[in-house]
């Protein structure tokens, strides 16, 4: 059973003359422990795909299966619970609550799930130190650099032991060095913690950290490249591509 399975997924915004097809019958299967980057020119539908997989938006047509269950048919309540327990979100603008400190921000999903505050704090601190933020727990977001804020956000995404991490342009608001840090943190989440990461980015250098790149154009998948195979395997795939010419 694939972690994420997307079948004939379509999303249409508006109607009539203002109708925009953001996704057009997309099929994608993502296995557990894969680090997938979604790339493509702006307006290609990459964010829409992420939103639909994350259950933040409803598809016009088709289905999204998370660990075998179809989320497009779930009620808002079930979906909310699924997001809380199985998914972690990382946003371009970090989206930390400005009035909470790093530990509290990190612990949010656990508190939302009714975990005891002490346990939530302990877990949050653990994740912060894993993400090299020891001693920053009491800092509020405005006292942290962009890269640090994003690492708090990653800690927050990881704290509830989710199956899937969804990241929307996680480095879009960072300089290239902090961007590299964030990308390698995500890499570690996949390598060390065997999580599935789906990341939307337009930065090739960040995408290169992934195991697989899905290219979207005009709402369709135009290419799907595995990056991490052995040289021989890669060469074989490349050869197949060449032959399909």
């Amino acid at each position: 059973m694939a972690t994420i399975e997307v079948k004939n997924l379509s999303k249409v915004y508006g109607s009539g003359e203002t109708k925009v097809t953001a996704l057009d019958s997309v099929n994608v299967t993502i296995e557990q422990g894969q680090f997938v980057a979604v790339m493509g020119p702006s307006g290609c539908g990459k964010s829409t795909l992420l939103h639909l997989i994350g259950g933040l938006d409803r598809p016009t047509d088709g289905s999204v299966f998370i660990e075998g269950s179809d989320i497009s048919k779930m009620s808002d309540k079930t979906l909310t619970e699924l997001r809380r327990r199985k998914m972690g979100f990382i946003f371009q603008f970090f989206n930390l609550i400005p009035v909470l400190d790093a530990i509290e921000n990190t612990a949010l999903p656990l508190i939302l799930d009714g975990v005891k505050p002490e346990l939530a704090r302990t877990k949050a601190s653990e994740w912060l130190s894993r993400n090299k933020l020891d001693g920053r727990g009491k800092h509020r977001p405005d006292e942290l650099s962009g890269g640090q804020q994003q690492r708090v956000a990653i800690s927050r995404a990881m704290v509830s032991d989710p199956v899937i991490i969804l990241a929307d342009e996680p480095t879009g608001n960072l300089d290239s060095r902090s961007g590299d840090e964030i990308a390698s943190t995500l890499r570690k989440i996949v390598t060390d913690w065997k999580r599935t990461v789906l990341m939307v980015t337009h930065d090739p250098r960040i995408a290169a950290y992934a195991d697989r790149i899905i290219f979207l154009k005009d709402g369709k998948v135009v290419d799907d490249t595995l990056l991490n195979g052995s040289n021989g395997e890669n060469a074989k795939r490349l050869k197949e591509k060449v032959e399909s010419l």
């Binding site: 972690g88 989206n95 609550i97 400005p98």
Partner: peptide, 16 residues
């Protein structure tokens, strides 16, 4: 709106 949206995304219910 942004904070609220984030809370919704990370699993806060409408009632919350």
């Amino acid at each position: 709106r942004r904070d609220l949206g984030m809370l919704r995304a990370i699993g806060a219910s409408k009632q919350t």
